[in-house]
Design a protein around this nucleic acid. Sequence first.
DNA 1: ACCACTAAATGAATGCCATTCATTTATGAT
DNA 2: ATCATAAATGAATGGCATTCATTTAGTGGT
Lengths: 238, 238
Amino acid sequence: MPAAARPNTKPPVAPRDAAPRVAAAPAKRRAGRPATAVLDQAVITSAALQLIGKSGYDGLTMAALARSLNVAPSALYNHVASKRDVLVLVEDHLAALVDVSAFGAEPWDEAVRRWAWSYRDVFSKHTPLIPVIAVLPVTDAPQTLAMYEAVSQGLREAGFPEERIISSIVALESFIFGSAFDVTAPADIFDPGSMAESTPSFTAAVRSLAEQGHEKPADAAFSLGLEALISGLGALRR
Amino acid sequence: MPAAARPNTKPPVAPRDAAPRVAAAPAKRRAGRPATAVLDQAVITSAALQLIGKSGYDGLTMAALARSLNVAPSALYNHVASKRDVLVLVEDHLAALVDVSAFGAEPWDEAVRRWAWSYRDVFSKHTPLIPVIAVLPVTDAPQTLAMYEAVSQGLREAGFPEERIISSIVALESFIFGSAFDVTAPADIFDPGSMAESTPSFTAAVRSLAEQGHEKPADAAFSLGLEALISGLGALRR
DNA sequence: ACCACTAAATGAATGCCATTCATTTATGAT
DNA sequence: ATCATAAATGAATGGCATTCATTTAGTGGT
């Protein structure tokens, strides 16, 4: 406990509006409860999303977020407990963008396909959220939970045995999260450079893919793995 | 450009060893090139691993790393360009721990199985590295590249068409990385809590897994997905 | 009408963090 | 001997999330 100097412990010292304010900027609010509240979780979420869009996740700081809302950083903490909370809010917002509409309207395999591609595409732009989502209790993210419900129901109607439904979803989701990272990898990530001679099989495989493949490599791998998973998991149905 | 005060610009002021040193701590080194260098990338890597083992990734800071080596934080920057470099060194060290010995000694599917389980187990204790690895050019990580070479060669000998080898590896690796996160998730991550009534299919599936499953849920999902991938990808062989 | 309470803001302070830089000193090469 | 270089130091910078005492404005109770 350092307990050095304590803040604000000076008398009001009121700068009593005696000084002639010429045109002093947009008149910074002073302390105190505002007439109508400016912050809530919804506006924080949407400001965070805009900020991420403009400056990426490196630009998402509590200070920058507060600035974009014309508010002091400390004000945010009346509505979220931590920066992680902000990330959870963003995550749950994105979950609502994932397309589950094919469940119930298309054959189960096609529904899984559309869901998986959509899920990957949404989160490939938000990979820093993945470590957060992956360990997030579903209770804390209602939209995410709604997505799971749609998928669970789809798999059940397709004849998946009840006790394998969660494992199947987790397996698919793991693949999706891992694949989301790939999307953001640099194009030359597999260039062996000076090590080419010592890794002949790998080097040949990389070269062959570059010559043959027309799709983006991340898409080719995702398609390959997803189709393998769909047909492998499909064998579980009764 | 703040360009305020500049550092160290005082005369040597040498505390010429006149003061009687009673037993003054472990005699902090003063500046200047030491008789024999104490730091190199190998000792930094092993110190980082020890530190991670003791304090986790939150405890891995440049300051803590330097302290564990009895060195000033700035000294580290003579050997690595950034903290990210330290993470890359650690990652590549771990890659060497992944078991690829079954390639060439076992049937291809069994080799993939052992490799995948080993890979997941190693990195499930190091999930903060995953966002780094996933976008890391292979040239920067020789051990990782060696692992890819072993797997590539195994798949080629198993009859996988050259141009699908990389995609197959990427698909497997994506699944492995995603699954590594699952291992660290809290046990009750799927407890729908108060939302249970609004998510009947999901809730029933969770309950059913809890009743039926004996394995840890993350292991069940990994096993399910891995077997699906192995059999799905196996169909590519000629 | 008054009063107590509470919600929502401020801004100052804390203690971290990675990274940079001028400087010092020992060593090996010319 | 001289000199460039490698490898250390410690001070400084500018960030970061978070905490806290304080201020103010509404709300509900008597």
